[in-house]
Simulated scan of single mutants.
Amino acid sequence: MTILEFIKYISIVVIGLLPIMNPLTTIPLYMALTQKMTAETRQRQARKACLYAFCILTIFLLLGNGIISLFGISMPGIRVAGGLIILILALRMIFSGLDSSSSVDTEPDEIKHANLDYSFSPLAMPSLAGPGSIAVIMGFGSQIPEGSHILGDAIVITGIAITIGIAYLALSSASYIEKFLGEHGMQAVTKIMGFLLTCVAVQFLASGIRDFYIEFAKM
């Protein structure tokens, strides 16, 4: 395989994964969850979330079918679970404008230094490495020809790394967005984005329930 072909296949992975992952939809969730954290802690959350998302997608690429078979998990089940998690957080954003990271029973100065960890759930999973992203990665893995798994896996993993890098840049820019909007602007955006996340959650749930129905109808 030539370098141009290698780049071509990596680009296909990035183009296929990036719209499904859509890091822009994670920004409002990230901003709401980390609003009372220090700048350093927020950056750490972004780094950890992206690292976890990379590991999750890589594991599902290499061991996805085995994991699903071992635990008896189906993609509809992952969709429904992810939808429920996002729905709960989205409703909190709508009705309070904030999330649980701001409801710690302590003084304001201490709240700002709250060390709550949201990097794995819900930022990495199901937001960045959600059911759609996992399905896309497993789909790419299933298209790797026999005898070319090492090279094929390397291409897909490189594509995942590039997409996660783009996601990290998006999350890192969230602080600049917050400074531009101000406190009241942030509250308004949080409520609007909470509504949009509610729509995403309902879509996750609807897709999962539909797929459950299709699976049971075949039995």
Rank of each mutant, 00 (worst) to 15 (best):
F180I: 14
I160N: 00
L17E: 02
V189P: 02
V189S: 09
G208Q: 04
L29D: 00
L29E: 01
D153N: 06
A129Y: 08
Q45W: 03
I111N: 10
L51V: 10
L196T: 14
L33Y: 00
S11I: 05
Q187M: 06
D153R: 10
G165Y: 02
S148H: 13
V13K: 05
R44A: 08
H184F: 08
Q203T: 13
I56P: 05
S148I: 11
L84N: 00
G139H: 12
A129T: 01
Y213M: 13
I20S: 01
G66F: 14
A154S: 13
M193V: 12
E5L: 13
G130E: 09
G130C: 07
A124K: 04
F54P: 00
L57A: 04
L151M: 07
I59G: 06
L62D: 09
S172A: 11
S172F: 14
A206N: 13
S173L: 06
D109G: 15
F212H: 04
L24H: 11
V80S: 11
P76L: 13
A81Y: 00
S69E: 13
S133D: 15
A154C: 14
A188F: 13
R44T: 15
A170H: 10
M1Y: 08
P126K: 07
M21S: 02
G194L: 04
G82E: 05
D153Q: 05
T106H: 10
M21A: 02
Y176G: 08
I68M: 15
S11A: 07
L51Q: 10
G130H: 09
A90M: 01
L62M: 09
F212T: 00
T106K: 10
G159C: 06
T106M: 12
I3V: 08
S96T: 15
R47L: 12
L151S: 12
G139Y: 06
A154M: 13
I86V: 06
D153W: 07
A49D: 03
A174G: 02
I56S: 02
I85V: 15
A201D: 09
S142V: 03
